[in-house]
Simulated scan of single mutants.
Amino acid sequence: MKKLYWTLGSLFVLCVGAGIFYFSVYRQWQMELPRNITMETAWGEEYRFSEIKPKVRLLEFIYTNCPDICPNTTFKMTKLRQKLEKQHVFGNKVEFITITIDPKRDTREKLQAYAKTFGIKQNDKGWVLLRGNEQDTKKIADTFSFQYRDPGNGMLIHTTNTYLLNKNNRVIEQFGMGKKGFDIEEVYNAIMDEIQ
């Protein structure tokens, strides 16, 4: 009887371990930018994922009507940008990608206003603000298991993750969003570790 309990206990531990590995390592490693998608910047220029150069990338999903977590995260990313610029890596080794999950409402004009608020310029070499059609937006979000939906009032409910990608555009780490979830020092250290 003791042997049976020991065997069942060991099997349970193995299953739990396999589950943890799948959700924390393997599944994350499968997340990468789809290469067959073209989006447009806030200024209408094409951004082809198939043509991007190898860089470490920080990816965030936002919508411009978001009352708190999205603008708070983008604001923290501006502070992170300043730290990376001091190290002379922003733009040439590191790129930020911000994608709207509400392309219907987030017109070019709205995205340009959002960009201006956070100091993202039209020809910014280190930060792109993107919009695509609903199908492509969903495809990218699904790749990263980023869930969102509109309950009908334009205030989208969404996952609160940002994603750090290596030079091969695969996710190597996930961070939270907002005041408590996005820790500038933690993200900065992860980026610097990856580029060195």
Rank of each mutant, 00 (worst) to 15 (best):
V89D: 07
F118T: 01
E95C: 04
Q112F: 03
T143H: 11
T64N: 11
F75R: 04
Q135Y: 14
E40M: 10
N133P: 07
A113N: 04
I172R: 10
C70I: 02
I140L: 13
G9E: 09
G181Q: 05
T107Q: 09
K139D: 15
E186D: 01
N189S: 12
Y63S: 09
K76P: 00
W127S: 06
I195M: 12
R35D: 15
V89N: 06
F146Q: 05
H88C: 01
I140E: 14
G91W: 13
P54T: 08
I140Q: 11
Y63R: 00
F61G: 06
I69C: 06
G91K: 03
H158A: 09
K2N: 09
G19T: 01
K86C: 04
F118N: 03
D124H: 11
S50W: 14
I69L: 14
V94Y: 05
K93S: 08
L11N: 06
W43H: 10
D136S: 15
Y148I: 07
Y114R: 06
L33H: 02
F118S: 06
N65G: 10
G154M: 07
M192A: 10
I195K: 03
V94R: 01
M177P: 00
F182H: 03
L111S: 04
N133K: 10
K3C: 03
N123I: 04
E109C: 02
D124I: 08
K179C: 00
D124G: 05
I195G: 10
E95Q: 10
T98P: 02
Q28F: 00
V89K: 06
T41A: 11
T117W: 12
F61H: 07
I101A: 02
K55W: 12
L130V: 04
